[in-house]
Design a protein around this nucleic acid. Structure first.
Length: 329
DNA sequence: AATACTCACAACCGCGGGGGT
DNA sequence: TACCCCCGCGGTTGTGAGTAT
């Protein structure tokens, strides 16, 4: 049974011959594709329109970039996947000359395995259960200089979850969660250029603030500007089930990150709104935290995972497409 | 050298959305 | 509103090259 568009005619399947490629290429470069369903007939091919379209998009298009993926491209794929999930077409838009099929194949054949070998769940980008405890303990108990910086550390403070730049502050160890990088963390960190236009990457913003009620304890936090190219107003909610369940870096309704003013604001975790430290303690999340020698054993990670994280990260996004965010790198 | 296995990539399939009637 | 057609997307399968036994 063929596609509906070509069910009436006999169509060839399988690999394309050079002759077929030539016919298709010649037809599209001279006539354009118009309606794909009419392409086979016009081009003299015994293929279905869908097959022609796919062949053109994935192989014959002149602007395709051939060859293996660079490390930079790989990082972009990982970062985009963390935000977008398996939306290959959206991810591919960030990689000029690459097709969604190519990105998908590269993910399945290479990146996925790489992440798994690093103990990361390729679906969520979080540490997999068997690795979680050990890694959290590792992050909490190891000297800061030993921490793998590919796993940025986050602190919850005043309803905001911010990444703590390990390079900046090595003395204070507030309660930390070891989680995968927030969206676009690496590219932004790597770029570190001074923004001159609204589409350019902005530098991480670093500042120092008192932590909790103790004036003697301060922490340095780094936030990551989320640059939007959209002109619209506030976004009512953000996240989807396929989005990174951590949801870091995603805005909430009242936060003016996404306007054209390109304000640089801390990225807030929505569901932590109003959950001040005391409340977290009341809920048993923090039980008797010594901010300078935090021990993961007194931090109810399961609670955070199941309650805070899932709530923060899987808010209903039915009314907003993540595409609308128009993230740029 | 022959066979089995693995892997990367190309292509197919089914589904859902949008537009036209 | 219902139906049809077309397009695009994501998941899955097929294929061929490379490698191991």
């Amino acid at each position: 049974m063929g596609h509906r568009c070509c069910s009436k005619q006999k169509v060839r399947k399988g690999l394309w011959s050079p002759d077929e490629d030539e016919k298709l290429l010649k037809h599209i470069t001279t006539q354009g594709h118009g309606s794909w369903s009419s392409v086979p007939k016009l081009a003299g091919l015994q293929r279905c329109g869908k097959s022609c379209r796919l062949r053109w998009i994935n192989y014959l298009r002149p602007d395709l970039r051939r060859g293996s993926f660079t490390e930079e491209e790989e990082q972009i794929i990982i970062d985009c996947h963390r935000i977008l999930g398996n939306r290959w077409a959206q991810i591919a838009k960030h990689l000029p000359g690459r097709t969604d099929n190519e990105v998908k194949n590269y993910w399945n054949s290479c990146i996925k395995k790489k992440l798994i070998s690093q103990g990361l769940d390729p679906k969520t980008h979080n540490l997999m259960p068997s690795h979680q405890r050990a890694s959290r303990k590792f992050a909490c108990n190891m000297p800061q200089t030993s921490i793998d910086h590919s796993f940025p550390v986050f602190a919850v403070s005043n309803g905001q979850m911010t990444a703590i730049n390990n390079n900046v502050n090595r003395e204070i160890q507030p309660p930390v969660l070891t989680l995968p990088s927030p969206p676009l963390l690496q590219p932004i960190m790597a770029a570190s250029t001074t923004p001159t236009s609204e589409n350019q990457i902005q530098k991480p913003n670093t500042w120092t603030a008192n932590y909790g009620e103790n004036p003697n304890v301060s922490i340095t936090t780094t936030t990551f500007p989320c640059v939007s190219s959209i002109e619209s107003g506030p976004i009512s909610s953000c996240s989807t089930s396929s989005v990174n369940p951590s949801g870091f870096g995603l805005p909430d309704d009242s936060y003016p990150i996404w306007g054209t003013n390109k304000m640089v604001e801390p990225c807030r975790v929505p569901s932590l709104e109003g959950l001040q430290l005391q409340e977290l303690q009341d809920k048993g999340v923090y039980k008797d935290v010594d901010y300078c020698s935090f021990d993961s054993s007194i931090f109810d990670l399961a609670f955070v995972d199941s309650t805070l994280m899932s709530g923060a990260m899987s808010r209903d996004l039915s009314s907003v497409s993540i595409d609308d965010f128009g993230w740029t790198f």
